[in-house]
């Protein structure tokens, strides 16, 4: 058994690749699309069930949509759960204004194609109104999304927010319930979570409180990509390899943009890269990659020796507990 064979999980096979004259890999498409694997079918059905339970038991839910791959899967689950009806909730984007333009274009195109309602609330508005004070003008706005998010919850009186977070992303998330209760300050109390048994969810809250709902809790990064491949879902182009100017900083590739210029003495190089997560432009780093199709991304994910957040998020490494801290304060 080769190394690759030994790490390919059950229920998955790599597509056979053939090289054309130009040496580019193409997936062999033979016959009809295969049925969803048993594992993905179960995950999909569980996510649909969770979404429907939340809609039935809360008054005013919203779905967080960023244009990232997990929230793209969330939209597909919402279609599976509610079509031919329209979604019984609006989409909500907490915009840092530090976006990759490709992601925002994608967001607007996707919302238009689905014919659903999108609410955008921006961290920039909160900064201009003085609700968020920056220590440095160019600092990451990721952490400040909390203020904007809690403001939007209050403004629209949302009592449930769907998020695409997964338990395999990070160790504080590994301990979070599918239905995660937040007090009137938006705080998460990890030591006092509601027991969650079988698939009986407790969605009851007091006025002013809300729940965060994570239908993709049991999915892994690989499941997300396999599902995107199976459902033939479009994702923003920056997930695929492209040539980009970067600098090498702290073992990471940092994109050179107007918001993140190279520091004095740093050498700008052009590399073939792709993003594994999309977020605030100032703290999202690409990885070196030549994966230009979803199948190639799946193959790369199987072989990757770094976690998704470890490789690409400059803000999660500050301390071993930084995600837990942010979550307690009301972060996604």
């Amino acid at each position: 058994m080769s190394f690759i064979d030994s790490i390919i999980p059950a229920g998955f096979s790599l597509n056979k690749k053939k090289l054309d004259a130009a040496g580019t890999a193409h997936s062999e498409q033979v016959g009809a699309r295969p049925a969803l694997s048993k594992h993905l079918r179960w995950l999909e059905s569980e996510a649909i069930h969770i979404m429907r339970e939340t809609v039935a038991e809360t008054r005013n839910p919203a779905l967080l949509f960023s244009g990232g791959k997990d929230s793209i899967v969330m939209l597909r689950i919402a279609e599976k759960a509610f079509r031919p009806d329209r979604f019984p909730f609006p989409l909500l984007h907490i915009d840092t204004e530090h976006n990759f333009p490709e992601v925002i274009q994608f967001r607007d195109k996707k919302v238009a194609a689905l014919n659903e309602k999108l609410i955008v609330r921006s961290v920039g508005e909160d900064i201009r109104a003085g609700r968020v004070v920056l220590r440095k003008p160019d600092e990451s706005r990721n952490v400040h999304q909390t203020t904007t998010l809690l403001g939007a919850i209050k403004e629209f009186e949302f009592d449930a927010l769907f998020g695409g977070a997964r338990r395999d992303e990070e160790k504080a998330r590994a301990k979070e319930r599918i239905i995660s209760h937040r007090d009137e300050w938006g705080q998460w109390d990890p030591k006092n979570q509601r027991p969650e048994l079988w698939s009986l969810y407790n969605l009851r809250i007091h006025p002013g409180e809300h729940v965060r709902v994570f239908p993709l809790s049991n999915w892994t990064e690989l499941d997300i990509w396999q599902y995107i491949a199976h459902e033939n879902l479009e994702v923003p182009s920056i997930y695929f390899s492209h040539l980009r100017e970067v600098v090498e900083r702290k073992d990471m590739l940092v994109p050179v943009t107007a918001l993140t210029p190279a520091k004095t003495g740093e050498a700008i190089v052009t590399r073939s890269v792709r993003f594994r997560t999309v977020g605030d432009i100032t703290c999202t780093a690409p990885v070196a990659s030549h994966a230009s199709t979803v199948d190639e991304i799946i193959e790369e994910t199987l072989l990757s020796r770094l976690t998704e957040r470890g490789a690409t998020r400059l803000d999660d490494q500050t301390s071993d507990a930084s995600m837990e801290q942010r979550k307690k304060e009301g972060y996604f």
Partner: peptide, 10 residues
């Protein structure tokens, strides 16, 4: 608390 972990073998 309960922590959920995910892994796979062939």
């Amino acid at each position: 608390d309960v922590a959920y972990r995910y892994f796979a073998t062939p």
